Simulated assay, not measured.
Amino acid sequence: MDPVTEHAPKVVRSDEEWRRLLNPAEYHVLRQAGTERPFTGEYTDTKTVGVYSCRACGAELFRSDAKFESHCGWPSFFTPLAGHAVIERTDTSLGMRRVEVLCARCHSHLGHVFSGEGYDTPTDLRYCINSVSLRLVPSEAE
């Protein structure tokens, strides 16, 4: 069984509930698949050690040790936490084929994943994630 669903139930809320729980910027990105402007997110240049969780439901998504500087304008990670924290699906909006990344627990939009860009990472993947989709929980050693 998927560790995400095994330990935490899926989060299902109505659109009205999401609107009450999220501020307008969070709602736009997380529930309407929007994108924050590049180089404006609070985690773009963050080096704090910890775990990045879904801002909508709190599910753990990425570890800081998988974060790298891609200079693309958004926080970038080379792998999600445990491999089961996110869902990937084809996105053909904007007239191109991309792979959208969603939280496996609440299906909120996080960003996109790109491959084959020549990054010197263990996976050659770049999970390009909106800061507004994340909440950094610093490690206790910090």
Rank of each mutant, 00 (worst) to 15 (best):
H7F: 09
C54I: 02
G50Y: 02
T121N: 06
S115F: 05
L30Q: 10
R105I: 05
L110K: 03
P75I: 07
Y127Q: 03
M1E: 13
P80N: 15
A59G: 07
H109K: 00
H7W: 10
D45S: 15
K10V: 10
N23H: 05
N130G: 12
P9M: 10
E6N: 12
E88H: 15
R89S: 09
V11W: 02
E88P: 15
H7I: 11
P122T: 15
D2P: 14
C57P: 05
I87R: 15
D15M: 01
S93F: 06
V101M: 03
I129K: 04
L136N: 07
V51T: 14
D65A: 02
G118K: 01
L30T: 08
C103D: 05
C54P: 03
S131H: 06
V132M: 09
S53Y: 13
Y52K: 04
R126P: 03
N130A: 12
G73S: 07
L61D: 01
H84Q: 15
V4F: 13
L102Q: 11
F78C: 02
G50V: 09
G111W: 03
G73N: 05
D15H: 02
H7L: 09
A56V: 05
K47A: 13
P138F: 14
F78L: 01
W18T: 04
R89C: 11
T121S: 09
D15G: 06
R105N: 06
D65L: 11
S14N: 12
P138K: 04
D15N: 08
C106G: 03
D91H: 12
V86N: 03
E88M: 14
G34C: 06
V49Y: 05
G116T: 01
Y43S: 06
V29Y: 05
L61K: 00
E88K: 15
R97I: 06
C54N: 01
A56T: 01
P24G: 01
L94R: 14
E69Q: 14
C106D: 02
G58H: 00
R89A: 08
S139M: 08
A33L: 03
V11Y: 07
E69C: 04
R63C: 11
A25M: 11
T123H: 10
K47I: 14
C128W: 07
V11Q: 05
D91M: 06
P24R: 01
R126V: 01
G58S: 02
R98E: 04
D120E: 11
C57H: 03
K47R: 15
I129D: 08
C106K: 09
V4D: 08
P3N: 10
L134S: 11
W74G: 00
G50Q: 00
E17F: 05
A25W: 09
N23T: 02
T79L: 09
H7M: 12
